[in-house]
Amino acid sequence: MPTRKQLTTFTDDDPPAGADPWVPGQHPEPPPEVVAYDPAWPAVYADLEARIRAVLGARVLEIHHVGSTSVPGLAAKPVIDIDLIVADPDAEDAYIPPLVAAGFVHRIREPWWWGHRMLRLDDPLVHLHVFDFTSPEAVRHRLFRDWLRQHPDDRDRYAAAKNEASAASAALGEHAMEYNARKQDVVREIYARLFAATGLTD
């Protein structure tokens, strides 16, 4: 479990000098357009969780629906974000081949950032993020999700930031990482309120 300091400190996930987070043959793509919340998304996630558990079995320490599609009423890119917690993300042979056999594509490898790997499924569109159980990022994802579920003002503030970032990135032909950077200030403002309200910061 991460410490309070780790939870409330955002570390730089840029690759070290000479490192490339993209698996060979993979590259950034423009993000999908932000759309209205779809009440079918929780059921889509439930089916995906069952499929992942079926191929990985006990390797799944935890699995969670995170990201905007996990927040009722929140506009979102139509991508189901899933956090998968495994014992050792560096032991790729334990979980990546079964997921690839199930249709996922391994796209990102970031061992310097809490062991993060990302796999993508195209139908339905899924980003499967893999972390170990010490990752503060995975815990933050769940805290952010639960906060937005309970605070509609911040949910709507975040939706506005997402729509603005999506429009700007689409106009400039930017990729998903640039889209994320455009909404980062609003995300950090919401986190600051969350951390203070929960007692994680003074």
Rank of each mutant, 00 (worst) to 15 (best):
Y37E: 07
P39S: 03
P39M: 04
P39A: 07
P39V: 01
P39Q: 08
W41I: 10
W41K: 10
A43N: 02
A43Q: 12
A43Y: 09
V44K: 09
V44M: 08
V44P: 04
V44L: 08
A46C: 09
D47P: 04
D47H: 14
D47M: 12
L48C: 09
L48G: 00
L48Q: 08
E49K: 04
E49S: 09
E49L: 04
A50E: 01
R51K: 09
R51H: 00
R51D: 00
R53V: 08
R53T: 02
A54Q: 04
A54F: 02
V55T: 02
V55W: 00
L56A: 06
G57N: 07
A58N: 15
A58H: 13
R59T: 15
R59M: 06
R59K: 11
V60C: 01
L61V: 13
L61W: 14
I63F: 00
I63L: 03
H64W: 05
H64N: 13
H64V: 12
H64Y: 11
H65G: 00
H65K: 02
H65E: 05
V66G: 03
G67I: 11
T69H: 05
T69A: 06
T69V: 12
S70K: 07
S70M: 00
V71W: 04
P72S: 13
P72L: 12
G73K: 12
G73T: 03
G73Y: 04
G73M: 11
L74R: 02
L74W: 09
A75Q: 01
A75L: 03
A75D: 10
K77M: 12
P78A: 11
I80M: 12
D81R: 12
D81N: 15
D81W: 05
I82C: 04
I82T: 06
I82P: 03
D83H: 01
D83Q: 08
L84P: 02
L84W: 00
L84H: 07
I85P: 02
I85W: 10
I85Y: 10
V86A: 01
A87E: 15
D88L: 11
D88H: 15
P89N: 00
P89H: 12
P89K: 11
D90L: 15
D90F: 13
A91V: 10
A91F: 07
A91D: 15
E92K: 14
E92N: 00
E92V: 15
A94W: 06
I96C: 07
P97V: 11
